[in-house]
């Protein structure tokens, strides 16, 4: 069963160098997008409340009053 899987992968990907190189690039293209999305999601969840998009909402509530004082 396992050796059949290896044969399938070999025949689909590794047999022709052009397909191998193409699948490396395709995987790299997909991976850099998914990796960036994943890291950004984690970063924004980890720093929730400190990010500009969160602070901006707080400033929007109180910001106009502060402007009147000056």
């Amino acid at each position: 069963m396992l050796s059949e899987d290896y044969s399938t992968i070999y025949n689909l990907v590794f047999k022709r160098n052009s397909v191998f190189v193409g699948s490396v690039f395709a995987t790299a293209f997909a991976f850099q997008g998914f990796f960036d999305y994943g890291v950004t999601s984690w970063y924004e969840a980890h720093n929730k409340g400190k990010l500009w998009k969160d602070v901006k909402l707080k400033l929007g509530d109180a910001g106009e009053d502060e402007d009147d004082d000056e």
């Binding site: 052009s18 397909v19 190189v21 193409g22 690039f25 850099q32």
Partner: peptide, 19 residues
């Protein structure tokens, strides 16, 4: 077929470096 597959590989290469 040989050059066609290399063309596809090159296309994905261009996509990778212009993302």
């Amino acid at each position: 077929p040989i050059l066609g597959l290399w063309g596809g590989a090159a296309l994905f290469g261009v996509f990778t470096f212009t993302e």
